[in-house]
């Protein structure tokens, strides 16, 4: 299990100090895909880079299965995709890049060659195995960056925006692989700004805002928690002069009301208040991760 406990990080210059992470704790268990979400500058990439050992935290602990950050046993269990556009040696072919990475991650030459062949085939890059790296498309480079991250078949994987800038086919291939790896028992921590990707892939969601984890729950639980409070009510006739003590919106025809309640029991009070308007239908609105994310990370406008 990846265990991150109370990490803090501030970047200091001569003139000021910017706190990036205030107190971040999270866990990634085997077989779990944890989506780490946050707005730009919320500290997602710093968190990933700390877990990789590229950045040292000011305080806190990071370990994988009890091995502390930086130890060879820790590193051996970790693969990471930090930048989908980089990471390849330009003078080597895709096959040689993979073979080299497998060897430096501890494989013998023959095992590295086999693994390189397997990964190229798996990601649909076999045809390009000997092509100069400069001739690869952006999608292919991203797939190669992913292949390098999983080169030594690590039990834990960090993916920083893995599908960023990919076309639909390449993104689907990567998503499929991520799902298969999770089904195979690998623990994956991914960051993304694409909520639909997080919703499709993750089994757990952690949201970072202002350097803190504001929510860390199984995805289903999070969606259920928000879904039970929002309703859509359709009326047979337009509503006029509606006043409610809840947050609500009415569409342009004044016949579709969307209302957010604090708790499920308030639905009775709401129906009382709406009477005698003729109700055609009532439905619970299924929450989506994007909406939940917006609610949890919304910022008050700052005043100069």
């Amino acid at each position: 299990m990846i265990h991150v406990e109370s990490i803090q990080k501030a970047y200091s210059s001569k003139t000021n100090s910017v706190k990036v992470l205030e107190d971040v704790s999270l866990e990634v268990k085997p077989g779990q895909v944890c989506a780490l979400l946050g707005r730009n500058g919320s500290g997602k990439t710093t968190t990933i880079r700390i877990i990789c050992g590229l950045v040292l935290p000011d305080a806190g602990k990071v370990s994988i299965n009890g091995h502390t950050l930086g130890k060879p046993e820790y590193m051996a269990q970790l693969g990471a995709l930090i930048d989908t556009n980089r990471g390849l040696y330009p003078r080597l072919s895709p096959f040689e890049n993979l073979q080299y990475t497998c060897i430096i991650r501890g494989m013998s030459r023959s095992a590295a060659s086999e693994r390189a062949k397997y990964l190229l085939d798996l990601l649909g890059l076999w045809e390009k195995r000997n092509a100069p790296t400069q001739t690869l498309s952006k999608g292919m480079i991203s797939k190669m960056a992913f292949a390098l991250a999983i080169a030594h078949d690590p039990p834990y994987l960090l993916l920083d925006e893995p599908t960023l800038g990919l076309d639909i086919d390449a993104a689907e291939t990567l998503e499929e692989q991520i799902q298969l790896m999770a089904a195979d028992g690998k623990g994956i921590l991914l960051t993304t700004h694409q909520m639909e990707v997080a919703e499709r892939l993750s089994s757990r969601v952690a949201i970072l805002a202002d350097g803190r984890i504001v929510v860390d729950k199984p995805k289903r639980e999070l969606l259920d928690m928000f879904a039970q409070q929002r309703y859509r009510i359709v009326f047979a006739e337009p509503l006029m002069g509606l006043e409610l003590p809840y947050v609500f919106t009415l569409d342009s025809t004044n016949t579709v009301l969307e209302v957010a309640l604090q708790c499920a029991n308030e639905i009775y009070d709401l129906l009382d208040r709406l009477r005698p308007a003729p109700i055609k239908s009532i439905e619970k609105i299924e929450a989506d991760l994007g909406q939940i994310f917006k609610n949890l990370t919304k910022k008050e406008p700052s005043h100069a």
Binding site: C52, G53, L54, K71, P72, Y74, M75, A76, L78, G79, A80, I82, D83, N85, R86, G87, L88, Y89, P90, T101, I104, R105, L148
Partner: peptide
């Protein structure tokens, strides 16, 4: 430049 320094760090050497 090639972004492979991260791989070197991850190699744990």
């Amino acid at each position: 430049k090639s972004g492979s320094l991260e791989n070197m760090v991850l190699s744990g050497q």
